[in-house]
């Protein structure tokens, strides 16, 4: 049995002003992958390709064992999709949407839908046009979750939500994580949200995947070293340094290949390591983007 719910191999797409650069990305079954990139980095294009909504120009896409876009109908039977720019029918109410989705998906779980209705504080009889943005996102999430999909694809679902609504959405997702067979792809430019729920992380920038690994590895390997340079000494090229900040003798170095062995290498180069600090996912993301744009190899 394939242990990847999603497999993208050398997938490319050319637009007039944007190019998806033959990306490869695997989502292990049961994983929660945070897909992080700035606006216009290629997150939505990648997601639309894996749903068959946009056809790739190059490369292959397998989703839940189905080849996309040719077998998208079969694949989408097991996919729940929520996107920030997705809208429900404004003149219909949520109950109508629930009935519509129920008529399409045999796995629809009415009890779970009603549970989510209460949890999200939504009224089934309320028309969609009367809902706030937060309520609309929660309504869409309810529709996507209640048919118990094997793959949940969330494209910037928390964008524009107030803190309470954002927390409610994230809590509902955390609950869903209890199902180890369900794979989640969560795209966002908000690293805090991704850090809360993901176990895998992929960074995308200017149409290229620049990092795809487990969140723990990432947080473990990326460190900030506060170092002191001996008077009169200059900092020569050191291995695995992504970013260097500071003036004079006190410097702050960011590495993406931290290991205790680095201490010895840096000390031999005349550095006194004063502190080793963990980085937040946001700091790692920003440092990765800057390093790549400066032409450094990650």
């Amino acid at each position: 049995m394939n242990n990847h719910a999603v497999e993208l191999r050398n997938v490319g797409k050319d637009y007039k002003y944007f190019r998806l650069n033959d990306i490869s990305l695997n989502l292990p079954t049961g994983s929660i992958t945070g897909f992080i990139g700035v606006n216009g980095a290629g997150k939505s294009t990648t997601i639309r390709i894996l749903l068959g909504l946009v056809h790739q120009d190059r490369g292959s896409v397998q989703v839940l064992g189905q080849t996309m876009p040719d077998q998208q109908v079969l694949a989408k039977r097991e996919i729940g999709y929520v996107s920030e720019d997705m809208r429900l029918y404004p003149k219909a109410n949520l109950a109508w949407h629930m009935q519509f989705i129920q008529s399409i998906y045999p796995n629809w779980d009415q009890a779970y839908a009603e549970q989510l209705l209460k949890r999200f504080d939504l009224r089934a009889e309320q028309k969609i046009k009367g809902l706030s943005h937060g309520q609309r996102v929660k309504a869409t999430l309810l529709l996507a979750l209640a048919h118990r999909p094997k793959l949940l694809v969330l494209d910037e679902p928390t964008t524009g939500l107030d803190p309470v609504a954002r927390q409610e959405v994230l809590s509902a997702l955390m609950e869903v994580l209890a199902d180890e067979q369900r794979t989640i792809l969560f795209s966002s430019h908000n690293t805090l949200d991704v850090e809360q729920i993901s176990d895998q992380v992929a960074f995308i920038d200017q149409g290229s995947i620049i990092e795809a690994t487990s969140k723990e590895d990432l947080l473990d390997l990326w460190r900030r070293l506060r170092v002191r340079i001996a008077p009169g000494q200059t900092l020569t090229e050191l291995p695995h340094i992504i970013q260097q900040q500071g003036n004079g003798q006190l410097q702050s170095l960011i590495t993406n290949r931290y290991s205790p062995d680095l201490h010895q290498i840096y000390q031999q180069a005349g550095l006194e390591i004063q502190a080793v600090e963990h980085l937040t996912l946001e700091e790692i993301f920003v440092a990765s983007i800057q390093a790549r744009r400066e032409g450094k190899t990650l």
């Binding site: 068959g52 909504l53 109908v73 989408k76 996919i79 996107s83 720019d85 809208r87 429900l88 399409i104």
Partner: peptide, 17 residues
């Protein structure tokens, strides 16, 4: 224009359908 097409196309439906 109202972006309901994204919702419909996310369902098990092909462009032909």
């Amino acid at each position: 224009s109202q972006k309901t097409l994204t919702f419909i196309m996310s369902l098990p439906v092909s462009a032909r359908h």
